[in-house]
Amino acid sequence: MFQLDTFIIQGHQKVIDHYRWLRDTAGSEAERERFQRRMVEEYEALKRYTESRSDGTRRAA
C-alpha cells in the first residue's frame, strides 16, 4: 500500500509543480490567477489525501 501512496502523492506534487510552471510563464494576470487557484486546489486535495491516510494509519494501530 505504501507504494500506491507514494505514487499518488508524487502525482499530486507533479501536478502542483506543473501549475506553478504555468503560473510563472503565464501571459496575463488572469491566467496567473487561474493557475494559482488550480495549484491551491491541487495542494488542498493532496493535503486531504495525506490527512485521510494518516487517520487510517492511526485507526489501524
Rank of each mutant, 00 (worst) to 15 (best):
D55R: 15
Q13L: 11
R20T: 03
R58L: 15
A45W: 04
A60M: 09
T25G: 14
Q13I: 09
T25N: 15
T57E: 07
E42H: 00
D55S: 15
E44M: 13
Q13F: 08
R34C: 03
R38S: 09
T6M: 13
R32I: 05
Y49S: 04
R48P: 08
G27V: 01
Q13R: 11
A26W: 01
E33M: 13
E44R: 11
D17P: 04
R48N: 12
Y43Q: 07
I16R: 01
G56Q: 09
D55F: 11
R38F: 05
T50R: 02
Q3E: 15
E29C: 01
A45F: 11
E29F: 06
G27S: 09
F2N: 09
K47P: 02
A61S: 13
H12N: 06
D5N: 15
A61G: 09
E44I: 06
R32M: 10
T57M: 09
T50K: 09
T57Q: 04
H12A: 05
S52L: 11
R34H: 06
D24E: 10
H12W: 05
H18M: 08
L22D: 00
Y19N: 02
E42Q: 04
E44A: 13
S54C: 07
E41I: 04
E41D: 13
F35E: 00
H12R: 05
F2R: 13
E29W: 01
E41A: 13
F7N: 14
R48F: 08
R23C: 00
D55H: 10
S52G: 05
E31G: 02
G11D: 12
G27M: 00
M1C: 12
R59H: 11
G11Y: 00
Y43C: 05
L22M: 07
R38C: 07
L46W: 03
Y49A: 00
D55G: 10
S28L: 00
Y19R: 01
I9T: 06
L4C: 15
W21M: 13
R48I: 05
S52Y: 02
H18L: 06
T25D: 14
T50N: 01
T57R: 07
S52T: 11
A30Y: 02
Q36L: 07
S54I: 10
L4T: 15
G11P: 00
E33R: 09
A60I: 12
D17S: 14
R23D: 01
Q10H: 10
H18A: 03
T6L: 11
E44V: 05
D17Y: 08
R32D: 03
V40W: 10
M39L: 13
L46G: 06
D55M: 14
R32F: 02
E29T: 06
E41K: 06
F35Y: 12
A30K: 13
A61M: 08
